[in-house]
């Protein structure tokens, strides 16, 4: 092989395609290996039976927007490679199947049974590797009890509070989008949301927040949820706005009623 030949080969029209293909293979394969290594265990059903059942459910309930092979379309994104975690989050919180298009898919009563959700997840996971549903090791009650709430609280304030509010009461985003309230959200759904970054939420991958970090954040949220304010009724955790309205309407309003009562006696 002479130098000349090498140069010729490099200039061949196929060279660019080959290089891109190789690059894609390495990065895609690497990503698949990495993500399957990071999200190791898959607890959901992965049997062929479940995948087939999931596909049927998919065709009946999801394909009109996401395409009959989950390849996506004008109405919905491709689901190839979104992983079981994404399905479990979107379907498990009732956001999917979507009810109406709008700035954001709304949470609503869950449309599928747990088994059906798992089947859908198995089907979507079978299309291409993607983040899987977190195991009990991170979101189980025993795991959450071990979590460091101080660390979790700090991480929450740094990473989450700017949208979800310092006490997780939720907050507004642009054009009608919003970060939802976190009270009452299941631990695994919080974990999944961090991994997949649904809708407007950014992805917090394991290099950004390790599984321990994620667990700590959830531990913190669950601690706050389980221990209501020491100061009494919380007024929705909305801070000074709720407090101001309360003082004007109920406190000052109540006192004005009393003044009217006091003034009326002699009139």
């Amino acid at each position: 092989m002479t130098k000349q030949k090498m140069n010729n080969a490099r200039r061949s029209p196929f060279a660019a395609i080959l290089v891109i293909l190789a690059g894609l293979l390495i990065s895609g394969g690497g990503y698949a290996v990495a993500s399957s290594a990071v999200t190791s265990s898959t607890t959901a059903q992965t049997s062929q039976e479940a995948i087939d059942a999931g596909k049927k459910l998919f065709l009946a309930n999801c394909a009109s927007c996401h395409g009959s092979n989950a390849e996506g379309g004008n109405m919905g994104p491709s689901l190839i490679g979104v992983g079981a975690a994404s399905v479990d989050f979107q379907v498990g919180t009732g956001r999917m199947p979507g009810q109406a298009s709008g700035p954001q898919m709304m949470k609503k009563p869950v449309q599928f049974t747990e088994e059906q959700t798992a089947q859908l997840a198995a089907y979507v996971a079978s299309l291409a590797p993607g983040p899987s549903i977190p195991s009990e090791e991170w979101v189980g009650e025993a795991a959450l009890a071990k979590g460091d709430t101080t660390h979790g609280g700090e991480l929450f304030r740094i990473n989450c509070a700017m949208c979800h509010n310092a006490v997780g009461a939720g907050g507004a985003l642009t054009e009608g989008k919003f970060a939802p309230r976190l009270e009452g959200v299941e631990a695994k759904h919080i974990y999944e949301a961090m991994v997949i970054g649904p809708q407007n939420m950014p992805v917090f991958n394991d290099a950004n927040l390790t599984p321990e970090d994620k667990r700590d954040i959830i531990s913190y949220l669950k601690y706050v949820e389980a221990n209501p304010s020491a100061g009494g009724e919380e007024l929705g955790g909305l801070g000074p706005v709720a407090e101001g309205l309360f003082v004007w309407i109920f406190v000052l309003g109540g006192i004005v009623v009393i003044t009217i009562w006091l003034g009326a006696k002699s009139n």
């Binding site: 740094i158 509070a161 700017m162 509010n165 310092a166 801070g239 407090e243």
Partner: peptide
């Protein structure tokens, strides 16, 4: 009725800014 539950907001640190800061 709770007012200003400072324990829920955490210590001040110039980097985090919470939504719904009023």
């Amino acid at each position: 009725f709770t007012i200003n539950p400072i324990w829920a907001y955490g210590a001040y640190d110039p980097s985090p800014v919470s939504a719904g800061t009023q």
